[in-house]
Design a protein around this nucleic acid. Structure first.
Lengths: 103, 103
DNA sequence: TGAATATATGAATATGTGTTCATTTGTCAA
DNA sequence: TTGACAAATGAACACATATTCATATATTCA
C-alpha cells in the first residue's frame, strides 16, 4: 500500500525535472544499444564501439551521460576502462518500455 | 523465465528506435506533469492547463504527443475533450524511474 | 624517454524539440 | 446564423543535443 501512496502523490517540481532527465537518458537509441550491450557483463569502450559499429568518440560521449546519471560504473584495468550497468532498475525500466512498444 | 529471455535478446534496431521514442515522451517534465494530473482520472484540456498553470496551446501540443504514443485516450463531451491515461504501463514506468531518482 | 594504444574532451555543426502567438476548427446556446 | 467557448494547429523562435573531427590525457612496454 505504501507504493500506491508514493504514486498518487505528485512529486516536487524538482524531482519531476530529475525524473524527466532520467528518461531522457533512455530516450536515445545509441544509449539503449550501449545498455543492451552491457546486459551480458562489463565491456571496454572499444569493445562497445566495435560491437555497435560506431565511433569510439561517440560511445565515449554517451558513456559519460550514463555515468553522470549513475547508470553505469567504471573500472580501469591497464589501458582499458570497463563499463558495467550499475543499477538494478535499468533492466526493469527498459522491460516496461518494451512491454508497451511490443504491446 | 520467459521474461528473462526477452531481456537478453537484443531487439531489432527498429524496435530500439520505437523504444527510444517512447522514453523520449517521458523525458519532458511538462508531459510528466500532465500524466500525473491524469492519475486521478480524466480531465479536460483546460482543466489540465489550469491545474499546471500553463497555456492551453502548450498542453494541447503535448497531449498530441501522448496521443500519438497511445498513452492517453480521448473522449468528447460537448465542447470539452477529456483525456485519460490509456496504458497500464505508464504508472509502472514512472514508478521505476522514481525508484531510481529517489534511490 | 618515446611509441603505441585506449579513452576522454572540446569545438563545430546539424538536427530535434518545447513554447508562444495567431489562427482555425468544432460545439453549443441564444 | 451569430457569438462565445474549447481545443487543435501551424509557423517561428530559442534552446538542447547527438555526432564528428581533431586533439589531449593516461597507461603500458620497449
Amino acid at each position: 500500500m505504501e507504493e500506491k501512496l508514493t504514486m498518487s502523490v505528485v512529486p516536487d517540481l524538482e524531482v519531476l525535472f530529475e525524473l524527466a532527465d532520467l528518461f531522457k537518458v533512455f530516450g536515445d537509441s545509441t544509449r539503449l544499444r550501449v545498455m543492451y550491450a552491457l546486459f551480458d557483463g562489463e565491456l571496454s569502450v572499444t569493445a562497445i564501439a566495435d560491437s555497435l559499429g560506431m565511433e569510439q568518440s561517440t560511445i565515449s560521449h554517451q558513456l559519460r551521460v550514463l555515468r553522470q546519471n549513475k547508470l553505469v560504473r567504471v573500472r580501469r584495468e591497464g589501458k582499458q576502462i570497463y563499463y558495467a550497468l550499475d543499477d538494478e532498475h535499468v533492466e526493469k525500466i527498459i522491460q516496461m518500455g518494451l512491454d508497451h512498444v511490443l504491446e
